[in-house]
C-alpha cells in the first residue's frame, strides 16, 4: 500500500510540471498584449517598451519561462492589478472559502447520493425506482446557477428563511451559525448535480454487485439482507462510486465559478470570474495553476482510496 502511494505521488511530479508549461503558455496564447491591458490603449509606445522590458516580455520565450518558474518556486505568482495585492495572498484567502463550500458540497453529495442510490437499488423496477430516474434526469439537465436562482427566489426572497449572498452577514456577522446559514443554499446548488450522478452510479454499481455470485453465496449462508448490503455489496460497489466522486470533485471546482457568482461567495470562482472580466492575467495564471494542482491532488486521493477499497491494487 505504501509503495503504491509513493509510486503514485512520484507520478504527480511530471503532471504538475506539465501544468506549469500550460499556464505559462496562457500569456503567450491569449490574444492581445499584457501591456495593452495594464496601460490601456492610450499609452505611448515608449511607456509600453519600458513596461515590456520591466516585465521581461522582450526576452526569448524560454528565458521568460525560466524566470516564471524561478518566481513560482519561490512562491511569487506576480501581482494582481485587479486586487492590488500579490496573487498568492489573494488566492490563499479565497482558496479557504472555496474549500469550505466544495468540501461541504462533496460531503452532502456523497452521503445523500450513496444513501439514495442504495435505497433505490433495493427495489429495481419499483415506483420508487422510476421516480428516481425522473428526479436524476431533472437534476442533471438543469444548469446549476438556475437552480441557485430558484433557491434564492423561494427560500431567500419569498420565505426569507436564508441569507441570499456572501459568507457572513454585513451587520453583526461572524460566528459559525451565521456561516452555516449562508452555506446552505450554495452548498445545495453546488451539490445537486453531483448528488444525482453519484446516486445513479451507486444504484447501477450496486445492482451489478447484488446479482453477483458472492452475494448469492452470502445469502446461501443465511446472512440477513441488511448485513449483506452493508458488508458485502456496498464495499464492492465502492470503486465505481469513488471514481465518480473524484470526477465530481473536479466538476465542483468549475461549478464553483457559477455558484459563487450567483451567491457572491468570496471564493476562487468569484475571483476568477472577476479577474477574467478585468483581464487580470497574472491572477488568471495563478488561479488556473492552483486549480489544476488541486485537481491533480484530488485524483491522487481518489487513487489512494481506490487502493484502500480494492485489495488487488493494495497488494499489487
Amino acid at each position: 500500500m505504501l509503495s503504491f502511494i509513493v509510486n503514485r505521488a512520484l507520478q504527480m511530479i511530471p503532471v504538475i510540471f506539465g501544468v506549469t508549461v500550460v499556464t505559462f503558455a496562457l500569456t503567450q496564447i491569449i490574444p492581445g498584449d499584457l501591456v495593452d491591458v495594464m496601460l490601456g490603449s492610450t499609452a505611448s509606445e515608449d511607456a509600453r517598451q519600458e513596461l515590456r522590458h520591466a516585465l521581461g516580455l522582450d526576452q526569448p520565450v524560454i528565458v521568460q519561462y525560466f524566470s516564471y518558474m524561478s518566481h513560482l518556486l519561490s512562491g511569487d505568482l506576480g501581482r494582481s492589478h485587479l486586487f492590488s495585492l500579490p496573487v498568492a495572498s489573494v488566492l490563499g484567502d479565497r482558496l479557504v472559502n472555496t474549500a469550505i463550500l466544495a468540501v461541504s458540497a462533496t460531503v452532502v453529495a456523497t452521503a445523500l447520493g450513496i444513501a439514495i442510490g442504495t435505497w433505490v437499488a433495493l427495489k429495481p423496477g419499483s415506483l420508487r425506482d422510476r421516480g428516481f430516474t425522473v428526479a436524476v434526469l431533472f437534476l442533471n439537465s438543469m444548469p446549476p446557477f438556475w437552480f441557485g436562482l430558484l433557491l434564492i427566489l423561494f427560500f431567500g426572497l419569498s420565505l426569507g428563511l436564508l441569507p441570499v449572498s456572501g459568507m457572513y452577514a454585513v451587520v453583526d456577522g461572524g460566528g459559525l451559525g451565521d456561516l452555516l446559514a449562508h452555506m446552505v443554499m450554495p452548498t445545495l446548488t453546488l451539490a445537486a448535480w453531483s448528488l444525482a450522478i453519484i446516486a445513479r452510479m451507486t444504484r447501477s454499481a450496486l445492482l451489478d454487485v447484488i446479482n453477483s455470485d458472492y452475494i448469492r453465496t452470502a445469502r446461501s449462508r443465511g446472512l440477513a439482507e441488511p448485513r449483506i448490503i452493508a458488508n458485502h455489496a456496498l464495499p464492492n460497489a465502492m470503486p465505481q462510486v469513488i471514481t465518480v466522486i473524484g470526477l465530481q470533485a473536479g466538476f465542483l471546482l468549475s461549478g464553483a465559478v457559477l455558484t459563487e457568482t450567483v451567491f457572491s461567495w468570496p471564493g476562487i470562482g468569484l475571483a476568477m470570474y472577476q479577474a477574467i472580466s478585468a483581464r487580470d492575467i497574472p491572477f488568471i495564471q495563478g488561479g488556473v495553476l492552483l486549480l489544476a494542482i488541486v485537481f491533480v491532488l484530488i485524483n491522487f486521493v481518489v487513487d489512494a482510496l481506490y487502493a484502500y477499497v480494492n485489495p488487488k491494487i493494495k497488494l499489487a
Binding site: 453477483s212 455470485d213 458472492y214 448469492r216 453465496t217 452470502a218 458485502h232 464495499p235 464492492n236 477499497v309 480494492n310 485489495p311 488487488k312
Partner: peptide, 10 residues
Amino acid sequence: DALSALNPVM
C-alpha cells in the same frame, strides 16, 4: 466458480 463466489474485498 469459486473465484466469483467469494467476496473479493474480504
